[in-house]
């Protein structure tokens, strides 16, 4: 996994996501979720290709159930783009990289 990806927990979620100056893409995942494994290499690549424009972060929903419930995570993988502490875009399911970039294009500029 890319070292540029931020590992989230209850202790740093506010600082790294809600108070972040740049847009943050959060991957809600779990170890038992096979499609989540497909998303990982895509995020690694996005973290390299869009460094400085967007922050990429991962949150394990098993270890952080309260945050998952608060954000209405009912299927994983779910990717949520946060800007200024607000949810801007939600992508549910494992999508191809091209599609992810297309959906997130307004925040990747």
């Amino acid at each position: 996994m890319s070292e540029k990806i931020v590992q989230l927990s209850a202790t740093n979620f506010k600082e790294e996501v809600l108070d972040s100056k740049v847009s943050v893409l959060v991957d809600f995942w779990a170890a038992w979720c096979a499609p989540c494994r497909m998303v990982t290499p895509i995020l690694d690549e996005l973290a390299e290709e869009y460094e400085g424009k967007i922050k990429i972060a991962k949150l394990n929903v098993d270890d952080n159930q309260e945050i998952a419930v608060k954000h209405n995570i009912l299927s994983i993988p779910t990717l949520i783009l946060f800007k200024d502490g607000e949810e801007q875009k939600r992508l549910v399911g494992a999508l191809p990289k091209k599609k992810v970039i297309e959906e997130l294009s307004p925040w990747l500029k």
Binding site: W32, V61, L74, S75, I76, G93
Partner: peptide, 18 residues
Amino acid sequence: LQGRGVSYCATCDGALFK
């Protein structure tokens, strides 16, 4: 509502419905 409570895979999403 798919992915927002409608699911076709309990093993994928079940744990989110504790």
